[in-house]
Design a protein around this nucleic acid. Structure first.
Length: 244
DNA sequence: TGCCATGTTAAACT
DNA sequence: GAGTTTAACATGGC
């Protein structure tokens, strides 16, 4: 479920609780549940794949990891699997199989909001600067670096590299300036396409290489390999994606 | 049926 | 203590 765009969709479906007081909190999350009731959920902020429920001096940070899910108003899984349930006057919010932390609100000040590819605060120039500092890093790794491209996940990584015709094992420092620009631009643009397609339930249909076997451009066989220090699945065309 | 994957953290190593 | 590697988490699709 969760790359950055999916998290934005989650935010849209839970934002209706913003401004409401939390009546009760329970679940198997290892946090101090007693501190939560009575707090007002002031705001919901997302940063890449993380969601911050901001309330008073605290913020509840939710990360869906690989298999996390949520539901609104109706508990959809057995009580035993419930990680966090927040009860509001107007309804209920449920989270499952996710990382939950109760943090000091101050942590929000430490976040580099300019790194969130889906945010209005996204600053491509800043991303470029960060990339310039690590010329030996592979493009397949840097796209997954949440400090540079917060919200980008493995699907977006694979699709972006195909779109710009760059081999996943290319070194960042070897990319011509125009390709570097394209990388940064597509990381954001594809994320918005992902968001749009996900909302329309047609995301998979639009995958060009991720989990695919045939290159949509040349008809050749795609390579599937775990690459980089992140060692995540890469799907790419040896012919249409140039190694820099 | 068993494998593995849209992800990250923390423990266990060196 | 640092940096690096491994395991844990635990669901659902193929």
């Amino acid at each position: 479920m969760p790359e950055g765009p999916s998290i934005l969709i989650m935010k849209e479906s839970i934002v209706k609780f913003a401004g409401e007081k939390i009546i009760s909190a329970n679940g198997n999350a290892k946090i101090d549940m007693e501190k939560i009731p009575g707090l007002t959920l002031e705001e919901i902020k997302t940063y890449g794949k993380q969601t911050y429920l901001v309330c008073g001096e605290f913020t509840i940070r939710i990360h869906l990891l690989m298999f996390g899910s949520y539901s609104v108003d109706e508990q959809t899984k057995p009580d035993q699997r419930l990680r966090l349930h927040l009860q509001f006057k107007s309804g209920d919010l449920y989270f499952y199989t996710c990382s939950v932390k109760l943090l000091d609100r101050e942590v929000l000040k430490e976040i580099d909001w300019n790194a969130d590819v889906l945010s209005d605060d996204w600053k491509p120039l800043k991303a470029r600067k960060k990339l310039k500092a690590i010329p030996d890093a592979l493009v397949c790794d840097v796209l997954l670096d949440q400090n540079i491209f917060s919200g980008v996940g493995n699907i977006i990584k694979n699709e972006v590299l195909f779109r710009i015709g760059v081999h996943p094992e290319s070194k960042v420092g070897n990319l011509p300036p125009a390709k570097l620009s394209a990388l940064i631009k597509e990381a954001r643009d594809y994320s918005f396409d992902f968001l749009k397609w996900k909302k329309e339930y047609v995301l998979k249909k639009h995958w060009l290489v991720h989990t695919k076997r045939i290159c949509p451009k040349c008809g050749g066989t795609l390579t599937k390999k775990h690459l980089g220090i992140t060692n995540r699945r890469s799907f790419y065309c040896e012919k249409d994606q140039k190694l820099y």
